[in-house]
């Protein structure tokens, strides 16, 4: 048991060291990323939001902070901050919906912080960060009116969603809204692949900030993920070979 803890700590320490080292080495060079057209289309849609005076909607899913799904919601909150910085000066400030109360409070805090940075002194509408519903379908039902009635022209679904996300992608299509969707949930990823015009699969959800103006640590974390993935592949293949040879 002690060895398992030590091994886990060693992995975290190794990852942290790699991230810090790579971000320091690459602090002056421009990051090079694999082409993901979805992010280019998101930037265009955000530009249109500001030009048209319409609204950006970010939906953060149902992942609670005290659950393993909280990481997806945190990735969504990071993107909310970046996009709010770009659109808070628009005629209609962005709106965020979530299915977890703590994430709803954090979304209000994020939107308020961005709003006050861009328009100091102006009154912030705290209902821009909303709790849509606490169960999967009540969350979807609570989010649909925002997409239909609040002059939304771009929607970002980023967090932990289940298959109910298909109701939201359908609403986006009906209202002719741009939609980028990402979830850490596997069935939801399959549903989003089939129903969303732009869907992020697997760890692409966690790469969103690096692609959208993140710092050196964000781009370093993508490289570290690649390194760790190759190490895991090597370990899996070595384990299979050893088992085949009768050593395990």
């Amino acid at each position: 048991m002690i060895w398992v803890g030590l091994a886990g700590f060693a992995v975290v320490l190794f990852t942290a060291g790699l991230m810090l080292g790579l971000s320091f080495l690459r602090r002056k060079s421009a990051p090079a990323f694999r082409d993901l057209p979805a992010f280019a289309r998101l930037r265009q849609a955000v530009g249109r939001v500001v030009e048209d005076g319409t609204r950006l909607h970010v939906s953060l899913g149902r992942g609670g902070l005290t659950t393993p799904q909280g990481a997806a919601a945190l990735a969504g909150l990071g993107m909310l901050r970046r996009l709010a910085d770009l659109t808070s000066a628009s005629d209609q400030p962005p709106v965020a919906t979530s299915g977890d109360s703590a994430i709803a409070i954090l979304s209000q805090d994020t939107l308020q912080s961005s709003f006050q940075t861009i328009t100091p002194g102006a009154a912030f509408d705290i209902t821009a960060g909303r709790l849509a519903g606490l169960t999967p379908f009540s969350y979807a039902a609570g989010t649909l009116p925002v997409m239909h009635d609040e002059n939304v022209s771009a929607t970002l679904l980023m967090g932990n969603f289940g298959v109910e996300a298909a109701l939201l992608t359908d609403a986006a299509e009906r209202t002719n809204t741009y939609l980028l969707a990402a979830s850490d949930n596997l069935p939801a990823q399959a549903v989003l692949y089939a129903s969303a015009p732009d869907a992020l699969i697997g760890e692409e959800l966690f790469a969103a900030q690096a692609y959208n103006g993140g710092g050196p640590l964000h781009s370093a974390s993508l490289t570290v993920q690649d390194i760790l993935r190759w190490l895991l592949i090597a370990v899996l293949l070595a384990g299979a070979a050893l088992k085949l040879a009768g050593f395990l």
Binding site: V11, A75, E203, F206
Partner: peptide
């Protein structure tokens, strides 16, 4: 494969925080 990717993403976002 996808779950491993998500787990690695979770680890790095935790460290970024």
């Amino acid at each position: 494969g996808l779950l491993i990717g998500v787990a690695l993403g979770t680890l790095t976002i935790g460290l970024r925080i």
